[in-house]
Design a protein around this nucleic acid. Structure first.
Length: 107
DNA sequence: CGGTTGACCAAGT
DNA sequence: GACTTGGCCAACC
């Protein structure tokens, strides 16, 4: 299994209404390649992970940086914020509002 | 094998 | 809080 796929698997573990960070994702994957995580997302084979990895969708829109700030998104950050809000996660100007409360720590 | 890139992170201005 | 620096790691060429 490639590093990318591993990351996606972990992404799917993130429950709805919660978010995670690239750092935690990397740690959970057994590495410290924070950047490689985002890199993998960008160059994913599906074009965009959110709507289809195999048959299950990968909620990569629930992934933010360690500061709770949103980063790139193939469909646009605006769309990303909308999706998050739809799940009960409040955002403001591209950043998670109750970041600490909605943060999922892979336990 | 070496160099570049990136949806990063932490620490320092 | 915003911007800069240095460091990190995997993927790609």
């Amino acid at each position: 299994m490639r590093f990318n796929e591993k990351v996606w698997q972990l992404c799917k573990k993130v429950p709805k209404g919660k978010v995670t960070t690239y750092k935690l994702l990397a740690e959970a994957a057994g590495t410290k390649a924070y950047r490689a995580v985002g890199n993998a997302m960008n160059k994913n084979p599906n074009g965009l992970l959110t709507y289809g990895y195999g048959k299950k969708m990968v909620p990569c829109h629930r992934v933010v940086d360690s500061s709770g700030h949103l980063h790139g998104f193939a469909h646009g950050l605006k769309k990303k914020a909308e999706l998050l809000r739809k799940e009960g996660i409040k955002t403001e100007n591209g950043k998670i509002k109750d970041f600490e409360k909605v943060l999922y720590r892979f336990f």
